[in-house]
Amino acid sequence: MPVRRGHVAPQNTFLDTIIRKFEGQSRKFIIANARVENCAVIYCNDGFCELCGYSRAEVMQRPCTCDFLHGPRTQRRAAAQIAQALLGAEERKVEIAFYRKDGSCFLCLVDVVPVKNEDGAVIMFILNFEVVMEKDMVGSPAHDTNHRGPPTSWLAPGRAKTFRLKLPALLALTARESSVRSGGAGGAGAPGAVVVDVDLTPAAPSSESLALDEVTAMDNHVAGLGPAEERRALVGPGSPPRSAPGQLPSPRAHSLNPDASGSSCSLARTRSRESCASVRRASSADDIEAMRAGVLPPPPRHASTGAMHPLRSGLLNSTSDSDLVRYRTISKIPQITLNFVDLKGDPFLASPTSDREIIAPKIKERTHNVTEKVTQVLSLGADVLPEYKLQAPRIHRWTILHYSPFKAVWDWLILLLVIYTAVFTPYSAAFLLKETEEGPPATECGYACQPLAVVDLIVDIMFIVDILINFRTTYVNANEEVVSHPGRIAVHYFKGWFLIDMVAAIPFDLLI
């Protein structure tokens, strides 16, 4: 008679799926529990143990900040960024110097990925580790590398530091407007667009060049630039800015003055950032001319202004700041037409079709709590990747769950009947059967004279019903998954307890 339990259901295979997918890609990662103190490590794979030199037993239950890997060259700011990422709910990448158990130093890129439950609360953290440099290539500990984003994938490793954006290309926007319009339909740009040429040739750093990471940081200074100062900065030398009595002219307006920039070969870094931020506020060169004239017309309804409409929906549905990093990277690809469009465009503009998908598509409701890094690593669709929660398995109709209350009560009843059979069957065979043979035949009273025979008949009927119930009862397979398919249940029961239950259900007393 089957006594099969499996009270692990309803099970959740999400954690096993993450481990299996990460292991298949030869990654070095740990999984931490966000619900406990210090976000203790609950799993670390073999790749991480080989990377740091510690065994799994030495890593388990330690804080996922990996303070046991810190050393003299470990930056405090990087460690603080990892700790801050564990307090938030967004994906974050941090470069930090770690030390192995043998004392060797290596520069590592740590990717902190939160995993949320159905309520939107962070319950786990996945920390992925990628070695960037070994100890002989690690720089000085005073050099802070965590304020910069990861290198873009479309640049060669040897040319990542030679990417320079020439400031004269930004200063000569109005001069290039006529050349853009003359391109017409034969050019790649839309009317009114501004073409910015980027020099990728390796050259020595000069005062006129600005690194790509500095251009990325310009967006942080746009908020500090007032509207009046932006307007004066875009007017140009024809209309000098008016300053109040006793007030000095704005240095932001002076930063885009061609006369002032041409007199000296070098520009201050602050002026460069502010000038680029001011130019980015204009949607095209037409807006710059309109600002000089004193009238700013409404933005025209053409394809170039609607190019950012799908980007707005993608940004609203993005799951991490990696989408913004990807957008900034692609927006700086050289030799393309940049349409400086305000994100607050007309909502009635139709979304044009684009061959290049900048932001990841909208994630469906079932995966809105899973970050983009987890979705990318697992390579699963929205119909396959579940949320991290207890999910009731989908069972067929008329199927009994093996952990249901009805099955528990039924098993206790069958257990009592088995005990009765084990006690009274030998007793009936030894004593009652002998008395029946010696006594007179009682054929007239039937079952009324033999109450134990009636009980034995009921017990046999219950055993037959138990066999039928076992054909529709779920079970737990070797992978700790609840199986509810009727065919698989029948095959599993035939290979197991079916023969024993059938022999126990045969009414031998009635056959004798």
Rank of each mutant, 00 (worst) to 15 (best):
P2Q: 06
V3D: 14
R4S: 14
H7I: 08
P10S: 14
Q11E: 11
Q11L: 11
Q11R: 14
N12K: 12
G24H: 10
K28R: 09
K28E: 01
F29C: 01
I31D: 01
I31E: 01
N33F: 01
V36H: 08
V36L: 15
E37I: 06
V41S: 01
C44D: 01
F48K: 01
L51D: 01
G53P: 01
G53A: 01
G53R: 01
S55L: 02
V59R: 01
Q61T: 09
C64W: 01
D67H: 08
F68A: 01
R76A: 14
Q81R: 10
A83S: 12
A85E: 01
L87I: 08
L87Q: 15
A89I: 08
E91N: 11
R92G: 13
K93P: 06
K93V: 08
V94A: 06
V94R: 01
E95L: 09
A97Y: 15
F98M: 07
Y99C: 01
S104V: 07
C105Q: 15
C105P: 15
L107Q: 06
C108F: 01
V115W: 09
E118W: 15
A121C: 10
A121K: 14
F125W: 10
K135R: 08
K135F: 06
H143Y: 14
H143F: 05
D144W: 06
D144A: 12
T145Y: 15
S153K: 14
G158V: 15
K161C: 05
F163G: 14
R164L: 07
L165Y: 14
K166Y: 01
L167I: 14
L167S: 10
L171F: 15
L173I: 03
L173N: 12
A175C: 09
R176G: 05
R176C: 05
S178C: 06
S178I: 01
R181A: 14
S182F: 05
A188F: 05
A190L: 15
A190C: 06
V195D: 05
D197Q: 06
L200E: 10
A204M: 04
S209D: 10
L212H: 08
E214W: 04
V215E: 15
T216N: 09
A217Y: 06
A217Q: 14
H221G: 15
G224F: 15
L225D: 10
G226Y: 06
G226W: 05
E230F: 06
G236E: 13
G238A: 04
P240N: 11
R242S: 04
P245M: 14
P249E: 05
P251D: 13
R252C: 15
R252H: 13
S255G: 07
L256T: 05
L256P: 08
L256W: 12
N257S: 11
S261I: 09
C265K: 14
T270K: 04
R271E: 15
R273T: 13
R273P: 12
S275E: 12
A277R: 06
S278L: 11
R280Y: 07
S283I: 05
D286G: 07
D287Q: 12
A290I: 06
A293P: 14
L296G: 12
L296P: 11
P299S: 09
H302M: 12
S304I: 11
T305G: 12
A307L: 12
M308Y: 12
H309W: 12
L315C: 05
S318L: 12
S320H: 06
V325W: 10
R328V: 05
I330D: 05
I330G: 10
P334R: 07
Q335A: 12
Q335Y: 04
T337R: 12
N339L: 01
F340P: 09
D342M: 01
K344H: 14
F348S: 07
D355K: 14
D355I: 12
E357M: 14
I358A: 07
I359R: 15
I359S: 11
I359K: 11
I359E: 05
P361M: 12
P361I: 09
R366L: 07
T371I: 13
E372F: 03
K373M: 12
K373L: 07
K373Y: 05
V374T: 04
V374G: 01
T375C: 11
T375A: 06
Q376W: 01
Q376A: 11
V384D: 08
